[in-house]
Simulated assay, not measured.
Amino acid sequence: MIDFSASSAHEFGPLCTVLRSVADFTPGPGERIMLVGASARDLIHQGLGFDAELASTTDIDIAIAVPDRSAYQSLVTDLEPEGDTRIRFRIDNRSVDLIPFGGIEHPTGTAIPHPDGHTVDVFAFQEVFDGADLYRLPEGIEVRVPTAAGYAALKIKAWVDMGALGWTKHARDLSYVCMWYQNSPSLHDSLYDYEKDADLFERADFDQDLASTYLLGRHIRTAIGDDLANQLATLWDPDSRKLMASAERSDRFLSTPKARDYDTRLQYFNAIHAGLSTVPGRGDGD
């Protein structure tokens, strides 16, 4: 468990307030909900020991495990809808997406929370949830948060779906994950374990930053399983990776020449893809 319970609630902005409200209408909330989106990103960032402020957002995204559509409808029936997404509600004067996954998925990876047939993509949500870390926040609030690799998997899928429409935040957020892997010993230490991931150093021509991105891809594959990893690798094709590398380079936290350089970013994204595509010990992916 990652423990922020000794922190002041105000350090987490409106998040604790919203989570308390969600707990009021969600049985066993700590066991059924997972933060995704920017709130998850910020907690992962802090949990890894980084304190620089990331790009801000006012939205809060919460994935909620439900057995079927009627269960989801019963949870949200008294909430004020916002916009036309069918999953966004006004909670404590904040825009909150409540994203259903689990038994409601049909087929797997797609939820249909409303009778009108509107679909919600929840690719790999169950797998990311199963491997998520538990965070303890102030006032006894507990919530699941994706691992860095699980978060990266969701971001790549979001980019595949939305990147061509100009949603550059997903490119920026994946660059944050690269930075985490390149700078957090807790994530990249296995590169020095000759029985585990040290082969990636040779693959990266002994460039630690590049080896760390190969490792991220390998961890994504472990997080979501071989079948979903193969699907994601196919969807995240070369054109998609090139577009991603050219997007969102103005973020001040990614202001170093290396982080802003197109060729370097593309090299990192290609390395993630290679690690994601490859079963360890069976050679390179595409």
Rank of each mutant, 00 (worst) to 15 (best):
M1F: 10
F4W: 07
A6W: 06
S8G: 00
A9W: 02
A9R: 01
E11W: 06
F12Y: 14
L19S: 08
V22F: 04
L43N: 13
G49H: 00
A52G: 07
S56K: 14
T57Q: 03
T57V: 09
T57H: 08
T58F: 02
A63C: 06
P67S: 14
S74G: 11
L75P: 03
L75T: 08
V76E: 08
D78L: 11
L79K: 14
P81Q: 06
G83R: 00
I91T: 10
N93F: 09
S95V: 12
V96N: 10
L98P: 03
G102W: 11
E105K: 11
P107F: 04
T108N: 01
I112G: 00
P115D: 12
T119W: 07
T119I: 09
Q126L: 10
F129C: 03
Y135E: 02
G140W: 15
P146T: 04
T147K: 13
A149R: 12
G150V: 05
Y151V: 04
K157Y: 12
W159V: 04
W159G: 04
A164E: 14
L165I: 02
W167L: 05
R172S: 12
L174K: 00
M179K: 13
Q182K: 12
P185C: 00
P185D: 00
S186E: 09
L187E: 03
H188D: 13
D189L: 00
S190R: 01
D197H: 01
F206V: 08
Q208C: 06
Y214V: 01
I220Y: 10
T222F: 10
A223L: 05
N230A: 13
L235A: 15
W236L: 12
D237R: 08
P238R: 08
M244N: 07
S246V: 05
A247T: 10
L254Q: 15
T256R: 11
R260S: 11
R265K: 08
G275Q: 10
L276T: 03
L276A: 09
S277Y: 04
T278M: 14
